[in-house]
């Protein structure tokens, strides 16, 4: 089994490119905290409305520079009253579902996360620009899936 000299060059180049891609995302993820949404916290999907922080969904200021936004997703909408957060501050989104799988996706941001019943998804994001951002569900959740949306105001 021998490789043509050009094939060796090609594979070396290809593998090097893949290693560079992996290094870029790996370093950015693990040393600059740019990991995708996730989290290992669990919750009883039937008791969401009586479990903190989802018993009081919405915005809570944690300290000077950090806000938490708790959102309950359900078919077909989001329970999160008065979604107003400041630009330039870290916003920690915590999202769960009372029924089926949904997504919580904020247009034109890195916030694009899956919401799984029984689990709490966490994502930290800092808005740069003020404005009204569309929130929508991009995981099929039933007949009204395409009508599931909301808005967050960044001031």
């Amino acid at each position: 089994m021998h490789l043509h000299k050009y094939e060796k060059i090609w594979l070396a180049f290809g593998v090097a490119a893949l290693v560079v891609f992996l290094s870029v995302v790996g370093v950015s993820a693990f040393s600059h905290d740019h990991t995708p949404a996730g989290g290992m916290e669990t919750i009883d999907p039937k008791k969401v409305n009586e479990t903190a922080p989802f018993d009081k969904p919405g915005v809570t200021q944690l300290d000077d520079n950090t806000y938490q936004v708790a959102v309950v997703s359900m078919a077909f909408g989001y329970n999160a009253p008065e979604l107003k957060v400041p630009a330039g501050k870290e916003i920690i989104f915590k999202v769960t579902s009372t029924d089926v799988v949904h997504s919580f996706t904020i247009d034109n941001t890195k916030v694009n996360l899956m919401v799984v019943p029984g689990q709490i998804t966490t994502k930290s994001y800092t808005f740069e620009k003020p404005g009204k951002y569309l929130i929508l569900c991009n995981e099929y959740c039933g007949t009204g899936h395409h009508l599931m949306y909301n808005e967050i105001e960044v001031y």
Partner: peptide, 8 residues
């Protein structure tokens, strides 16, 4: 990749 329940 964007869901909970699996560690990074």
């Amino acid at each position: 990749l964007t869901e909970p329940g699996i560690s990074n």
